[in-house]
């Protein structure tokens, strides 16, 4: 029991970046030679080749017609069989929506708990993950014997570039039956046509729940207009209908990387951060000095946004004269 399985995921026809990061995390848990990158699907040859060019150890294709489209029942059944055969020490996943959907049940099938959304791995090993929406960090340890299931957060581990040797590829065919799959997924769709492209904005003023009411959004709009910036928001603002959903930044919204991102009254939950961490300059305005948004900010102002945002608008006007 020294093997490490890493379940790779593809998105839009390519292995997603977060899967390479999961592979990098796995290398903190053991020897590269013991790492097996797993690709799952109905036709996995192309993905297996993509992985083989970069994976440090071996590649395993878990292939069955019933594994397309993704269903939790299908993935759990297939991976359970694979894990039983391989008896690994660790199973590592990228923390995607799909992994959230099945990995906790897969771990439970082995009497284990997925240590989810891990941000760092230190000796023992201890697994760090966020608590209280990023306000605290917890160090988790696996107890007793048995397989350790871990999922890693996007952006937490640096994906390694190409490996020099091409990994060997094996095929595993699980035994599956259509009756095992109880859910019927439909085709993915997008809500409405996007009319704003925040992705190419140079400056963004983004507002969160700290704004308190819809009327107050006007102070954000004024600052944005004065700067020549786009207005964006955290999820609760769009959920409430105070701004349209197409202005939402984060894992379930848009990913942006402007020169300047001003976050006003946004706490800095990971699902928001993944959408804006790549901004060149981040300014955080928050009344709570311990808000996680300050961890990624270049400039921070602690205080009431209802006072600071209008003052900022005035200061920008003055500077532009």
């Amino acid at each position: 029991m020294s093997g490490i399985l890493v379940v790779m995921e593809q998105r839009g026809g390519r292995i997603a970046r977060i899967s390479w990061e999961a592979l990098a995390a796995a290398q903190r848990l053991g020897d590269s030679a013991n790492i097996t990158a797993v690709v799952v699907g109905a036709q996995t040859e192309v993905f297996a080749a993509e992985v083989a060019a970069r994976a440090p150890g071996k590649v395993l294709r878990v292939e069955h017609a019933l594994l397309l489209p993704y269903t939790p029942d299908g993935y759990i059944a297939a991976l359970q069989q694979l894990i039983q055969r391989e008896e690994p020490a660790y199973v590592v996943f990228p923390h995607t929506y799909q992994v959230r959907d099945y990995a906790p049940a897969l771990a439970a099938r082995f009497g284990q708990v997925l240590i989810s959304d891990v941000t760092a791995i230190s000796e023992v090993p201890l697994f760090a993950r966020q608590l209280m929406q990023g306000r605290l960090s917890g160090a988790y340890r696996k107890l007793g014997s048995g397989i350790c299931f871990v999922s890693v957060q996007a952006g937490a581990f640096a994906a390694e570039s190409a490996s020099s040797v091409t990994a060997g590829v094996d095929l595993f065919t699980p035994t599956m039956d259509a009756a095992q799959i109880r859910t019927r997924p439909g085709e993915p769709y997008r809500a409405a046509a996007q009319t704003v492209d925040l992705g190419s904005a140079q400056m963004i003023v983004s507002v969160g729940r700290g704004i308190k009411s819809q009327e107050n959004i006007s102070i954000i709009q004024e600052l944005a207009t004065t700067l020549g910036a786009e207005v964006a928001a955290s999820r609760p603002i769009c959920d409430a209908g105070w701004l349209p959903m197409e202005r939402q930044v984060g894992s379930s919204g848009q990913t942006v990387a402007p020169k300047l991102y001003i976050a006003a009254g946004i706490s800095g939950a990971i699902q928001h951060l993944v959408g804006m961490k790549g901004s060149q300059c981040i300014v955080a305005i928050n009344k709570d000095p311990d808000a996680p948004i300050f961890e990624v900010a270049d400039y921070g102002i602690v205080g009431d946004l209802m006072e600071i945002v209008p003052a900022l608008t005035e200061a920008v006007k003055a500077a532009k004269q």
Binding site: G111, Q112, V113, I115, L126, A128, Q130, L131, G134, R135, L136, S137, G138, A139, Y140, R141, K142, L143, G144, G146, D290, P292, E295
Partner: peptide, 13 residues
């Protein structure tokens, strides 16, 4: 018995 434990809580880095 629990299979994972929260060993310590820290402020984030």
């Amino acid at each position: 018995a629990p299979v994972v434990s929260l060993e310590q809580i820290l402020l984030p880095q």
